[in-house]
Every structure is written in C-alpha cells, then in structure tokens.
C-alpha cells in the first residue's frame, strides 16, 4: 500500500515537473514566434515549413474561445464551424453522452445525463490536414489541394460545390457554405501563419491546449512532444495520416 502511495507521489511529481518544463518551453516558444513575426508574407517560403497541430485534451476547459476566435477571424457563417469542441461524459458501464451545443461557440452549460459519470473531458476538433487525404483525391475539378507546407485548402474560384469532399472527410471537417455554396474548411489560418502570427484558435486558447508546430523548425517544441510523448491521431485505421495529434485523449473519443 505504502509503496503504491509513494509510486503515486513520484508519478505526480514527475507529471508536475513535466508540466512545468513544458510551460517554460512554451513561453520561450511564444517569444520566438513574436520575434519572427514580420506581418508580411510576400517573402514567405513554403518549402521551409511543415506544419503539425497538437491538441492537449487534458488541458482543455471547454470555454469555446477557439471557436469564437475562428468564427470571427474567418467570417464563418452562423452554426457552421471550422473548429468545434465536443464534450464526452462516460459512465462506469461505458455509456457515452456526447454533445457540442452550437459547436461550443458559447461554451458549455452543466449537463446532467442521469448516468453515473466516471470520466468526462472536452474534445476540440478541426481539420486534421491529412498527408493522404481523401478530400483532395476525389475532388473532380482540382479545387482541393495540399500545399507544400502541409495545409489542405479549397480553391474558392474553382470549387463547384458538389459536396463530394464533405462526404469523404472522415472527420466532418468540411461544410458547404450556405451563401457561396462552395466547400469551406479550416485553412490553418494560412493568412496568419505565413505572416508569422499564431492561428486565431491557438492564440485564443487560454490554457495552451492548442498549439501549432513546424517539423522543419529546429528545436520545435510541438514536434518534440509528438516525437517523445504518447500521442494519438483520429481514426488511424483509415491511413489518412492526420497531422493533427492529440495528447491524453481517451479511446472513447471518435
């Protein structure tokens, strides 16, 4: 028993240490990003970047700041989402209750499911910017494409709004815009990241649960975490090789 308690103590200690070093590194990382920001993207070289996204579900508080920031930054129509947050409440018997009221744009209200909830967490979602993406492969007009730096975009002038990509995306990341009638999705805030700015959702997250990394940047913290920590991608069996990784995500999450 005592051994167990000691082991638990050591575990918590290690966890605390890891969290601390993580935060320090994050602060340094943020400093570096600010220095590099020139806010002009004419000289941006896409061969020097390879973006990767990291969501730490253990930190997410479900405030929906990311959803609000994304909606404003990208003028996303009401009740359509480029990123959204789901809430999982799981009972001891494994009964799942999942909700995401209006994509969590106004956060969450307490919810009594009537079950004996033993595990609950928030699950932020966005386009996974897959390496082998079905949405690009089946676009009949070459409107969906993947940039050299790893961002999936939709050519707004080329798209005919057939909706094949919306059906093909296993993560539900795309929608047909109700006014323009063409496919719309997360652009990884391409206009911001090419200017050295943080994505709207990353900048808005108050707890550092969302981060953007760059595999081609030396000493990149997110790349380091993905390389050394137990991370998870959504629906790995589909072999889409998502570039959005999850830390601490429970297996019930879909």
């Amino acid at each position: 028993m005592k051994k167990g308690v000691r082991a638990l103590g050591a575990g918590v200690g290690v966890l605390a240490l890891w969290d601390l070093s993580d935060l320090e590194a994050l602060a340094q990382d943020a400093g570096g990003a600010t220095e590099a920001a020139t806010h002009e993207n004419t000289a941006y070289d896409w061969t020097k970047h390879d973006y990767v996204y990291l969501v730490d579900t253990r930190k997410c508080i479900g405030c929906g700041s990311c959803v609000r920031a994304c909606s404003k930054e990208n003028n996303v129509p009401t009740d359509y989402f480029r990123t959204w947050v789901e809430r999982y409440q799981i009972s001891r018997t494994g009964k799942r209750h999942v909700d995401s009221p209006h994509g969590a744009i106004n956060g969450f209200e307490p919810l009594v499911t009537g079950d004996d909830v033993t595990k609950a967490f928030f699950f932020p979602k966005l386009c996974c910017h897959c390496t082998f993406t079905p949405c690009v492969q089946l676009c009949p007009v070459g409107a969906s494409y993947r940039t050299e730096d790893g961002v999936i975009l939709v050519d707004e002038k080329r798209c005919i709004g057939c909706g094949y990509c919306v059906q093909a995306c296993p993560y539900g990341s795309r929608f047909i815009h109700p006014e323009t009638h063409i496919a719309s999705k997360c652009t990884l805030c391409y206009h911001r990241i090419t200017r050295g700015l943080k994505q709207a959702c990353v900048q808005a997250c108050p707890v550092g649960a969302r981060r953007l990394g760059d595999r081609k940047k030396v000493g990149d913290l997110v790349t380091e975490i993905i390389a050394t920590q137990p991370v998870h991608v959504l629906q790995p069996g589909l072999l889409t090789e998502p570039n959005c990784f999850y830390l601490g995500l429970s297996g019930e999450a879909r």
Binding site: H39, E73, Y145, T147, E156, Y190, L197, Q203, A204
Partner: peptide, 28 residues
C-alpha cells in the same frame, strides 16, 4: 485556368489569394 498545375493538380494562384486575407486578430 492560369497557374493550374504549376505545383500540382490545382490553381497555384489560390495560395496567394489565401495569403492575402487580412488578419483580424492582432499580434501579441
């Protein structure tokens, strides 16, 4: 269209169109 196929099976000018979007949120 012009610039189609320059870097793959898509219109390369679309990338510049995305880059030209004005950021709404400020820098830190």
């Amino acid at each position: 269209p012009a610039s189609f196929g320059e870097h793959g099976h898509y219109r390369f000018d679309s990338v510049a169109e995305y880059k030209s979007q004005a950021p709404l949120h400020g820098a830190p």
